[in-house]
């Protein structure tokens, strides 16, 4: 394959059997208004959006006006179990979400600590096993621990979503060594999505350069002073990071090597420099 062909070839994100042009997934919470949320989703180019039912008394369908409004974006919906603390709660909410949103996709989130909203790895594996058996397409929000990630794959998860940093902190990629290990040691066919902790486009770009397949974020866009513009910035960063990864980053070197030849420089200058 020529270089040109490689550049032109569609570079799609495949999750389960579905394929997506966009490698940016966004949330639907915390925006100044639903209208700004929808404009931001559009500007982000996202084709997958996550949303939560937790506090909306879903049995009564009382958030329906807003859900319909979100649905009109035409994106793949990824209901989440935000706020659930036990597998039982998460499974019940997952079933309700599947029914209301008519999708078996699920961002599985089980919170183990109230202050930093850290995922509970034990509950996560337990719930993932049950939900995969019930036919859900489970995207677990997990820490960057290699062994936990393997256990999640063992119980049937096909996609993993390790954190960059705790939810809403905007700290970026806190443990790059762990994240690099995940990318290197887990099978290349397993899509890895950095979920949570991304505060700036540069952080999203770095994760993409490291070889992660996609980025999921909410707060950094929703809480920006101009969410629509920030959504566009993240779109560009994720695309740039992905392109950089595909293009092949150069390896860092100790010695400077001029990008233009220095033939006109006298040899004694070259030696002393």
């Amino acid at each position: 394959m020529s270089v040109c062909e490689q550049t032109d070839k569609a570079d799609l994100l495949q999750l389960f059997t579905a394929k997506f042009n966009s490698r940016l997934l966004v949330g639907t919470a915390l925006y100044p208004s639903p209208a700004i949320m929808r404009a931001s989703i559009k500007a982000s180019g996202a084709q997958i959006i996550t949303l939560s039912l937790r506090r909306q008394n879903p049995q009564q369908q009382q958030g329906k006006v807003l859900w319909d409004y979100i649905r009109q974006s035409g994106c793949q919906l990824l209901p989440n179990t935000a706020g659930c603390k036990t597998p039982k709660e998460a499974i019940a909410l997952a079933e309700m979400s599947r029914e209301i949103f008519a999708t078996d996709w699920l961002k599985l989130e089980i919170i183990g600590d109230d202050y930093n909203l850290q995922p509970d790895p034990y509950g996560l594996v337990e719930a993932a096993r049950e939900l995969v058996q019930r036919g859900f397409k489970v995207l677990p929000y997990c820490t960057d621990d290699l062994v936990i990630c393997r256990r999640l794959l063992d119980v049937g998860c096909e996609v993993l979503m390790p954190w960059g940093a705790p939810i809403g902190t905007g700290q970026g990629l806190l443990n790059k060594y762990n994240l690099q290990t995940l990318r290197e040691r887990l099978p290349a066919k397993v899509p890895l999505i950095i979920d949570a902790g991304i505060g700036a486009p540069s952080q999203a770009m770095e994760a993409m350069e490291m070889g992660f397949d996609a980025i999921l974020l909410n707060t950094a866009i929703a809480k920006a002073q101009n969410p629509v513009l920030m959504a566009q910035a993240f779109k560009q960063a994720v695309e740039a990071g992905r392109n950089a990864r595909r293009a092949g980053l150069m390896v860092k070197r100790k010695n400077a090597s001029p990008s233009t030849p220095t033939l006109d420089m006298p040899f004694w200058h070259q030696q002393s420099s």
Partner: peptide, 13 residues
């Protein structure tokens, strides 16, 4: 502030 047209009593949470 909860995105729901829900007039039931205050929740424990």
């Amino acid at each position: 502030e909860i995105e729901s047209d829900d007039m039931s009593p205050i929740s424990l949470r």
